[in-house]
Amino acid sequence: MKTEIDKGDAIAGILFILAGLFFAYQSLGMELGTSLRMGPGYFPLVLAGVLILLGITVMVKAVRNEAEPIGPLAIRGILLILPAPIFFGLTVRGLGFVASLFLTALIAAFASRKMKPHYAVLLAVLVTIFSTLVFSYALGLPFQRFGPWLRF
């Protein structure tokens, strides 16, 4: 009988412990109060303690007979999908809704290897036209269509 370490569980355990430590450390910087009159740090400190304990248990249990592989990571996806909403947030006020949304959709479109560049541009244009018509014109949401960065 061989013993292996389940990497997934081990990493999960470590992450829970780290998260617990972060919240515990932050909570200690606040007033704790008493059980009767709890301060802002009391409840989160208790929870953080529980999270650390659970994390340790998950880690201990990672040592067992069979381990499941973690599998491939979507690196390209992480690099292109996650920045899309961030980019939208950074530029929606400056570039305005139209340009910002177009670029957001364009960035996200390149997350897949199957997407050809000219289709990506076409798709982004269509999404932008649709959204501008629906959200900005029809629903009248308070978005600036063209922001100050585009004015001369």
Binding site: L90, V92, T104, A105, L106, A111, L123
Partner: peptide, 22 residues
């Protein structure tokens, strides 16, 4: 691969429209 750029665009709009908080 056609669907998810659309999804990303809409959920950016949706999340932002709730309270205009980037």
């Amino acid at each position: 691969y056609v669907l998810f750029p659309i999804i990303m665009a809409f959920c950016s709009i949706g999340v932002y429209s709730v309270r205009s908080n980037v």
